[in-house]
Nucleic acid binder design. Sequence first.
DNA 1: TTGAAAGCGATACCAG
DNA 2: CTGGTATCGCTTTCAA
Lengths: 340, 340
Amino acid sequence: MSQTPKQSAERPVPTSADVARLAGVSRATVSYVLNNTSAVRISEPTRRRVREAAEELGYVPHAAARSLRAGHTRMVLLPSAHVPVGPLYNRFFNELQRALRRLDYTVVQHGSLGLDGDDAARAWAELRPVAVVSLGEVALTPYGVDVLKRSGAKAVITLGPRRVQGAHSLVMDQSEIGSCAVTHLVGRGRRAIGVVMPREPGLELFSDPRLEGARRAAAAGGARIEPLPLLYDEESAAELAARWRGLGLDAVYAYNDEYAMLLMRALQDAGIQVPGETAVVGADNLLLGRLLRPRLSTVRIDMVSGQRLAELVDRVVRDPGAERERHGLMGARALHRESS
Amino acid sequence: MSQTPKQSAERPVPTSADVARLAGVSRATVSYVLNNTSAVRISEPTRRRVREAAEELGYVPHAAARSLRAGHTRMVLLPSAHVPVGPLYNRFFNELQRALRRLDYTVVQHGSLGLDGDDAARAWAELRPVAVVSLGEVALTPYGVDVLKRSGAKAVITLGPRRVQGAHSLVMDQSEIGSCAVTHLVGRGRRAIGVVMPREPGLELFSDPRLEGARRAAAAGGARIEPLPLLYDEESAAELAARWRGLGLDAVYAYNDEYAMLLMRALQDAGIQVPGETAVVGADNLLLGRLLRPRLSTVRIDMVSGQRLAELVDRVVRDPGAERERHGLMGARALHRESS
DNA sequence: TTGAAAGCGATACCAG
DNA sequence: CTGGTATCGCTTTCAA
């Protein structure tokens, strides 16, 4: 209790000046040595002394001071409101992270949970990131994009269902997924198709366009669409299954595989034959869907690779204004198994 | 092409000096107004002019400059190597993020994929976070903790299977989970118990202690433990199922529900009765496990609440050295369903 | 009530 | 080859 109560708390953080003092050189020399500045020759003994001093003090450069001086950062900011779910997303995210790191960027996710779009944009702008890659979890407005660009962001890239004015929008057309699922069902002779809409908040950004795509495909195929709100729990699924026959549907596209598995089980428990009476299709191509009987039909989603996105970020950072937006970075293909 | 090719690129980022100039006041006044400094009275008209000027220029304060001047940040850094999976983790993460934000911290995840523990610690230290909460994805060494503390971090908190010297370690005793699962199986008369060990990299931090807990429980109950490496794919599961009878096991604890579901299906496909011939237990209490037949028995894990962890972070930041490490922030309970 | 100025830590120019 | 020194943007005394 009386040993070193504040000592460690008060111990000042070592700066390059401390390193310089300990090594008996100037701060400039410290900077040259630690940054391997090639424009300047420093004698080997001096280099060693500096490095040893830095090591001894546990010196770590101060990123804020450095970027203040440099006038820019190498930070790529990825806003994250929710932790996204799904193996697809995870793989993509990890790829992106790794690729950006290889390009010598510092990848930082900013927890923006509970911030509205413009507040969030301002919070990000304070960090002066060189690029912002928004995965569509926080709705970025044209105003928000402007704030970021004015704060020095060279690249503002959105990856989501909608274009955002001013940003490099990589439109991931979610409607393609719904369209794909329903086209598949129509092709197998179904004409009255339910579309599960998760009632959990935060998923509308994905589920709305998927529904819209389903509608489009249904219209083209002469089928009827019925939106079906559903919570991700057994009670909600059982309740829906109980009134299933009254709905007069012969198929259902269930947003994704998890909802599809939930609903399929509930339907089976209610005595409804799958796929005989009702066909079921999910999306995401989860391994677990193959474990059910019947095996779950699904829509496989091909996401843009993290590597490619990282390269785009780098290109835009180096030459903003060179590239304009792209589309169709997401593909979707129905996989027929047994449930449809 | 010839419109404004570099103009926007070169357009300088507005600073508080620009705001001051536009509003016709000094930079000090701008600072007072925008930070609502209560120690100083500024006339209402001046305040308005300053705010309008800031708005017009799209001024956003420079976090680096501010923290450089202040000598500290309000940044809580959460290292993230992999995006963690599982609803439990997600909920916890979101809770933590939200609670920290309410306490006025800036939550930042640092993508540390592919950095070794000490390099990672140095990279984090450059950002001068006031606290680091490591969820055990990156192995933090005592040296790394020291680097962080010397760089001014008031709180270094690890949440993982092991204690880390120097840090506030919240030991989440993963072994409890394995122990719980095996005790359950032993209690139901099983004596030869397989333990699935995921072969995917990065999971050893969890799977090793779980195995160790399983061993402990087995020893206490007079049972035998057999580690079973498994990849998360159908081939690997089928291969394991094919040689199942040769292993002479009457039960298996399958790391978590996903591996359990995978293996259970493979066993059933190989004609092995579950739970008759072999009992199966997972962990995580996933909803999907309840959809299988037989319903999957599991271990429910009670994680520390994000709210509580956020409060701990805040306490340690305010008074480092006041609290020492805690244990047992994770509970585990077996849930018997039908597969065991 | 407002303004001038010092200084946070690192870097890069220019002199020595 | 090495050392002063001005500078980045912001906050905060201290004076006016």
